[in-house]
Design a protein around this nucleic acid. Structure first.
Lengths: 229, 229
DNA sequence: GTCTATAGTTAGATAGAC
DNA sequence: GTCTATCTAACTATAGAC
């Protein structure tokens, strides 16, 4: 287990600090101190702080996006002409977050923060390229859901896929911030223990699949009063 | 329509800039320039930049959290001993975001970014107090769902409420970032037009209610191989 | 590749006149 | 309450020795 080289140590330190404090709040000085590297090394290896952020994001998002598409491809090949069941599509969407994500609860939390920031800073120079990766995946998954649920109105399906995609990073990567009144504390255990993670995935798949399959809501044009024209 | 006083102008400018660029990325100078106020005015009225952030957040989150609880109270009074239908509970959760939120699509987007940042920066001094408000609401809503769905295992319900709460700000306040392959562009219209907003609320309530009501997933302890002991 | 030293900028905060 | 002027501290980035 040799000590990683300077470049790698900087990437690791930057990921940790960007996630914890934010991009602007993290100084290059803090990164190099944490990485036990010299101040100038960041500019030598990455040429700018912005560029370093981009590398940090791509290193994480790239493999997840790739794996999602791999799983979806395999699923579609296996099914041939028949549409895939929504549960299987949802599984392709979520498994990579656990397979390729960090192991510990603390690391998982950090990754959530990192992704969350990237979404908020979607137009920032460092985030753009990384988010394109996810965008491509979105279209493929939308098509798969469309095929699996041909009876749903276009707009309804659109919203449902929207709800699902939007909730993914926060629901999965972030431990629960709010605890219920009861004594059921899921935040720590659920995100670290392998079996609990399996459980969490099954819970989410059941929840999302039911939401997707629900009958489309009525399209009452006026809500109060008002007869038709 | 008199021009708001300095304090108010600063609050508005700060909200806009914090949401768009982030807290650390926004200088007090930029805020006062935008608010057409003097540099020193921020420290006179709020005593620090951190404090200004706290005021900005509370001004938005406070009324929403209050209104949610009002609606839930009214619903429970009306129902008496009988549990409220999940659709009604979900409505109490989401209506205030539209009633009290900003009118235009651009403003709504800003609010989403502001809340998103607050969640990410949950432990930062400026965000803490504002988030406590939402935390209190969480417990009340959890209890209402618990009563409405007594047959669900505790942990399953917990996760479902978790999914719902986590998805709320991103799913509602943020226009869709990714567009589907089709020509159905919801991002602009759906968030500004009043009728489209009604539609969006109905879509979400149908989706979430179905997810909540789904049968709990089986509790297979081992996923692969392994017979029971 | 790694380091020291520093240039050049910008930040939050404040003192004190009005 | 509002303004000007200024303090002090921190930052990114780079030049140049080793």
């Amino acid at each position: 287990m040799a000590r990683p080289d300077t470049r790698e140590r900087i990437l690791q330190a930057a990921e940790r600090l960007f996630a914890e404090r934010g991009f602007a709040e993290t100084s290059v000085r803090a990164i190099t101190a944490e990485a036990d590297a010299n101040l100038a090394a960041v500019h030598y290896h990455f040429s700018s702080k912005e560029n370093l952020l981009e590398e940090v994001l791509l290193r994480r998002i790239g493999p997840i996006a790739r794996r999602r598409l791999e799983l979806l491809d395999a699923l579609e090949r296996e099914r041939g002409e028949r549409p895939a069941p929504v549960e299987k599509i949802l599984e392709a969407l979520i498994r990579p977050l656990f397979e390729l994500g960090p192991r510990s609860s603390g690391e998982r939390r950090r990754l959530a923060r990192l992704f969350g920031r990237a979404f908020l800073e979607e137009s920032a120079p460092g985030s753009k390229r990384a988010l394109r990766r996810l965008e491509r995946a979105y279209r493929r998954f939308y098509a798969a859901f469309r095929k699996a649920l041909p009876e749903l109105p276009e707009e309804t399906l659109h919203w449902r896929v929207h709800f699902i995609f939007k909730s993914l990073p926060s629901a999965f990567l972030n431990p629960m911030r709010f605890h219920p009144a009861g004594n059921c504390d899921l935040s720590g255990r659920a995100f670290s223990d392998a079996r609990a993670q399996e459980r969490l995935q099954r819970e989410w798949i059941a929840f999302a699949a039911a939401g997707l399959r629900a009958a489309a809501p009525n399209r009452e044009e006026e809500k109060e009063g008002g007869a038709s024209p």
